[in-house]
Amino acid sequence: MTAPRRIAVVGAGAAGLHTAEALRRAGYDGRLTLVGAEDAPPYDRPPLSKHLLSGEWQPDRLTLRDPRALDELRLDLRLGVRARHLDRRARTVHLADGRQVPCDAVVITTGVRPRRLPGAETPLAGAHVLRTVADALALREDLRPGSRLLVVGGGLLGAEAAATAVGLGAEVTWLVSTGTPLAAVLGTETAALLTGLHRRHGVRIHRGTATRVLGRNGRATGVRLSDGTDLATDTVLMAIGSRPDTDWLADSGLRLDGGVVCDVHCAAGPGVWAAGDTASWPDPRTGCHRRLEQRTNATEQALHAARNLLAGPDGTRQAYAPVPYLWTDQYGLRVQAYGHPGAADRFEVVDGDPQEHRFAAACVRDGRVTGAVGIASARALRGLRAQVAAHSPWQSEAA
């Protein structure tokens, strides 16, 4: 099959950039358009809640490629403009500024948008989300020694922002809905370790469910909980999850169900592919659809989508079957995890000691390794990766 003459990659984050690079590395020399909603060239998002929020880094350090490297990709680069509509019949992406991008194939890498609480759907001073460089800089401006920050949401983003903010001298309350935040992601044992660290560093952990942001005179003053309690604060960070950025695809004819629904090859339809945070695809082992908001997945899935696109319908395509990997940096510790530690019913330490903040552990469910997690024990943790990938039966060293 002749390769498409024109490819549009919609979304200029990590997944979009890696898609473009993979296409060029594979020898694609046709017209390649990269569309991004932000004015900035592709940059890395994980440091937003840590290095950029703390002031340790400035925005230019987040840039994924320098201008020369971008030039070498020979991109038709369209930054600062959103995609508005995908016309699959006419093979055209319509942009919000009225321009059109004709394409024989399109890769959707538009990522996600942060969710907001009622009361903060429109801009409200002191009420923040954390998804972009601008978001991080705006939040940083509100974090002063002695200022009060209320972090709403018990996930990794909220945990990292709370750790960073308390390090800046803010008085931090972390509002969570479960007794052990992060347990669903990292497993109960590791989550309990991190929760203890937050408390020891002065973070107040409050259990409850926020229903809306409160404000007065155009500025946030707190949040209301489901039990009617009001929590007062100077600044609110809404870290309550995200939704796939797929509104522009509503009338495209693509299946949208918790993301852009793809097959095992990352194809969403003839000539349409998806990768990164917005892609939902079936796990080859279970058949269940999944969507991963993980930095490593953005890179790996982009490479798969690019290769399979160029293979054509009659070529050899590879099923996408990653081993999920994530990391989080909190209080000088880097926690790394493979697979799904939060789904385990057993926690088997294979190296080190969690109380010493150096360990690697297998996370086991129904006798099989479903995940692995560790701190400062990279070699032992990597040794567990193959078992996670194979969903191997667990055999303890004593056995």
Rank of each mutant, 00 (worst) to 15 (best):
T2S: 15
I7Y: 03
A8Y: 07
A8K: 05
V10M: 07
A12I: 05
L17G: 04
T19M: 04
R25P: 01
R25D: 04
Y28M: 05
L32A: 02
L34C: 09
A40C: 13
P46D: 06
S49P: 05
L52I: 02
S54G: 07
S54L: 01
G55P: 10
G55R: 13
L62W: 06
T63Q: 02
R65E: 02
R65H: 03
D66N: 05
D76V: 09
R78K: 11
L79T: 09
R82T: 00
L86Y: 12
A90R: 15
R91K: 12
G98K: 08
C103E: 10
A105W: 10
T110K: 00
L117K: 11
L117I: 01
P118T: 00
A120W: 10
E121F: 15
P123V: 08
G126T: 10
A127M: 14
H128M: 08
L130H: 00
R131L: 13
T132D: 09
D135Q: 07
E141Q: 14
L143E: 00
R148N: 13
V166W: 03
W174I: 01
S177M: 14
P181T: 02
A183H: 15
G187R: 03
T190V: 10
T190I: 01
L193D: 07
L197W: 04
R200Q: 07
V203F: 12
R204M: 10
L214C: 11
G215S: 15
G218D: 03
G218P: 08
G218V: 06
R219E: 08
L225I: 03
D227R: 11
G228V: 12
T229E: 06
D230C: 09
L231M: 02
D247R: 12
L249A: 11
D251I: 00
G253A: 05
G259M: 09
D263C: 14
V264S: 13
G271H: 14
V272W: 12
A274I: 06
A274H: 10
A279E: 14
A279V: 00
D283N: 14
P284R: 10
R285A: 11
C288I: 12
R291V: 00
L292M: 12
T299C: 08
T299F: 15
E300A: 05
L309A: 06
A311Q: 05
P313D: 06
A321T: 01
V323I: 07
Y325P: 06
R334C: 12
P341E: 00
A344S: 04
E348L: 07
E348H: 07
E348Q: 13
V350R: 09
D351C: 05
D353P: 13
D353K: 15
D353S: 15
R358K: 12
A361E: 08
A372I: 05
G374Y: 11
A378R: 04
A380I: 01
R382G: 02
A386Y: 08
V388C: 12
